[in-house]
Amino acid sequence: SLEELLKLARHALRHGEEIHVLDRVITDEHEIKRLIEELERLI
Rank of each mutant, 00 (worst) to 15 (best):
Lys33Gln: 12
Asp28Tyr: 06
Glu38Tyr: 15
Glu29Phe: 13
His15Pro: 01
Ile43Val: 08
Leu35Lys: 01
Val25Asn: 05
Ser1Gln: 13
Glu29Tyr: 14
Glu29Leu: 13
Leu22Asn: 15
Leu42Lys: 08
Glu40Thr: 08
Leu13Pro: 00
His15Trp: 12
Glu18His: 14
Glu29Ala: 15
Leu13Lys: 02
Thr27Tyr: 08
Leu22Lys: 11
Ala12Tyr: 02
Asp23Asn: 08
Glu4Asp: 12
Leu5Arg: 04
Ser1Cys: 09
Leu13His: 04
His30Gln: 14
Ile26Gly: 02
Asp28Ile: 06
Glu38His: 14
His30Ser: 13
Leu8Gly: 05
Ile26Arg: 01
Leu2Gly: 01
Glu4Gln: 11
Gly16His: 11
Glu31Ile: 07
Leu8His: 07
Leu6Asn: 00
Ile36Ala: 02
Lys33Ala: 11
His20Tyr: 09
Asp23Lys: 02
Gly16Thr: 03
Glu3Ala: 10
Glu4Val: 09
Ala12Asp: 00
Ile32Tyr: 02
Asp23Ile: 03
Thr27Ser: 14
Leu6Val: 05
Glu18Val: 14
Val21Asn: 03
Leu39Asp: 00
Ile36Trp: 01
His11Asp: 11
Asp23Phe: 03
Glu31Leu: 07
Ser1Glu: 12
Lys7His: 11
Leu42Tyr: 07
His30Gly: 14
Thr27Gln: 09
Leu5Met: 09
His20Val: 14
Val21Trp: 15
Lys33Gly: 07
Arg41Gly: 06
Leu42His: 05
His15Asn: 12
Leu39His: 00
His11Leu: 07
His11Ala: 08
Glu29Thr: 13
Leu42Ser: 06
His20Thr: 13
Arg14Tyr: 13
Ile26Thr: 03
Ile32Ala: 03
Thr27Arg: 11
Leu8Val: 08
Asp28Ser: 13
Gly16Lys: 10
Leu8Asp: 07
Val21Cys: 07
Glu3Asn: 08
Glu3Arg: 11
Ile32Ser: 00
Val25Trp: 10
Val25Pro: 05
Arg14Val: 15
Ile32Asn: 00
Ser1Pro: 11
His30Thr: 13
Lys7Trp: 11
Ile43Glu: 03
His15Met: 10
Lys33Asp: 04
Lys33Val: 12
Lys33Asn: 07
Leu39Asn: 00
Glu38Arg: 12
Gly16Leu: 04
Glu3Thr: 10
Thr27Gly: 09
Thr27Lys: 14
Leu5Tyr: 05
Arg14Cys: 07
Lys33Pro: 01
His15Val: 09
Glu40Trp: 06
His11Met: 06
Leu35Phe: 13
Arg34Ile: 11
His20Pro: 04
Leu42Thr: 06
Ser1Trp: 15
Thr27Ile: 09
Leu8Phe: 06
Arg24Gly: 06
Asp28Leu: 11
Ile19His: 01
Ile43His: 04
Glu37Cys: 05
Glu38Pro: 00
Glu3Ile: 13
Arg10Phe: 11
Leu5Val: 05
Glu31Ser: 08
Arg10Pro: 00
His30Trp: 14
Val21Ile: 14
Ser1Ile: 10
Ser1Asp: 14
Val21Gln: 04
Glu37Tyr: 11
Leu6Trp: 03
Asp28Arg: 07
Asp28Thr: 12
Glu18Cys: 06
Gly16Gln: 08
Arg41Val: 07
Leu42Gly: 04
Leu8Ser: 07
Leu42Asp: 03
Leu2His: 05
Leu22Tyr: 14
Asp23Ala: 03
Ala9Gln: 01
Ala9His: 02
Leu5Trp: 08
Glu40Tyr: 06
Leu5Thr: 04
Glu38Ile: 13
Ile43Tyr: 05
Arg24Ala: 07
Gly16Met: 04
Glu17Asp: 08
Glu18Ser: 15
Leu42Val: 07
Ala12Pro: 01
Leu6Glu: 01
Lys33Leu: 14
Ile32Leu: 13
Arg41Ser: 08
Leu2Tyr: 10
Ile36His: 00
Ile32Pro: 00
Glu3Gly: 07
Arg24Met: 11
Leu35Ile: 08
Val21Ala: 07
Ile26His: 04
Ile32Gln: 03
Leu42Cys: 04
Val25Gly: 03
Glu37His: 11
Gly16Glu: 05
Asp23Glu: 06
Leu13Ile: 06
Glu17His: 15
Glu3Val: 12
Glu3Phe: 11
Leu2Ser: 03
Glu31Pro: 02
Leu22Glu: 11
Glu18Thr: 14
Arg34Thr: 10
Leu2Ala: 06
His11Gln: 08
Lys7Asp: 13
Glu37Arg: 12
Arg41Ile: 08
His15Ile: 06
Ile19Met: 13
Leu39Met: 04
Ile26Tyr: 15
Glu38Cys: 07
Leu5Pro: 00
